[in-house]
């Protein structure tokens, strides 16, 4: 708790596009109310004076891509009571982790040239691969309403309510005609809800940015897409786009691409 009795909050960015932090700034309408509830003591994107901790709640954006970041994330964990990973990069590796599918030395050469020994890069991982994460707010970007709900819940000591059912729930509630019936490769059935099925609502198939739903059945979705004419490459790209770390799970390996 801060001097004013409010829980202290730190917001941190790692490797990613910073869009999730930006989304917190986008809360605009409710940002002042939010500041009545918690004390944001550290947030480099928005403040010039920042505390060095400890924090009651840390929100961490981005994937872990450098040795320096491994050290930093461990320090934040040690100084935080509750740690929440926000956005696809932090929760599932996100777009940056696609780099893992290429040879790391080759990538270093392409980006930094031949003299690249000083460049600190390691295979990209999600936050939970290095430290204990209390809650994850997935999505690219993270949903700001879900962020507000989570702050409220944590401020009063409740477990945040983060959906672990599929996007189809929200899609059906909005009475969208199913895109799979139009032969569009929708990832809705295997993706966690929480975005309000925004993509299918506008006629675009879900790309899976919120990551696999609890107890995901990859095999069934694979079969559906295959029957619709998708190639193994199409399917693999869809399954791994926002969640490259999924490639290492036993459920995924069973697919034998």
């Amino acid at each position: 708790m801060g001097d004013n009795g409010k829980p202290t909050v730190g917001i941190f960015g790692f490797t990613g596009c910073a869009g999730c932090q930006l989304n917190i700034l986008n809360i605009e309408d409710h940002l002042l109310e939010l500041l009545e509830l918690v004390d944001i003591t550290t947030w480099r994107m928005a403040k010039s004076e920042n505390s060095k901790g400890p924090w009651d709640i840390a929100f961490v954006e981005g994937s872990i891509a450098k040795q320096e970041e491994v050290v930093r994330i461990k320090a934040i964990r040690e100084n935080s009571r509750i740690l929440v990973a926000i956005g696809a990069c932090a929760t599932h590796g996100g777009l940056p982790a696609m780099r893992n599918f290429r040879d790391i030395d080759e990538m270093k050469r392409i980006v930094y040239g031949e003299k690249n020994d000083h460049v600190d890069v390691i295979p990209i991982k999600r936050v939970a691969d290095y430290i204990h994460v209390d809650y994850e707010l997935p999505g690219c970007p993270m949903d700001k309403d879900e962020f507000i709900r989570t702050v409220k819940a944590l401020a009063v000591g409740k477990t945040p309510d983060i959906p672990n059912y599929s996007v189809c729930y929200e899609c059906k509630i909005r009475e969208n005609a199913c895109l799979l019936k139009e032969n569009k490769f929708c990832m809705g059935p295997v993706t966690s809800a929480g975005c309000g099925a925004i993509c299918p609502t506008y006629g675009a198939p879900c790309e899976g940015c919120r990551g696999p739903v609890a107890q995901v059945n990859w095999g069934a979705e694979y079969k559906i897409l295959k029957e619709m004419g998708a190639t193994d490459d199409d399917i693999k790209r869809r399954f791994l786009k926002y969640c490259p770390v999924v490639a290492d799970t036993p459920e995924f390996k069973e697919l034998n691409f």
Binding site: Y165, C168, N217
Partner: peptide, 29 residues
């Protein structure tokens, strides 16, 4: 093996009536 537990069947079913109840605080608590 085929079912993804997406829940679509129950949501569109005219007699599936189950619901969840949750309390949601506003920002002023």
């Amino acid at each position: 093996e085929e079912c993804m537990n997406c829940g679509s069947c129950a949501l569109v079913c005219p007699t599936c009536y189950c619901y969840d109840v949750a309390d949601e605080l506003d920002l002023s608590l």
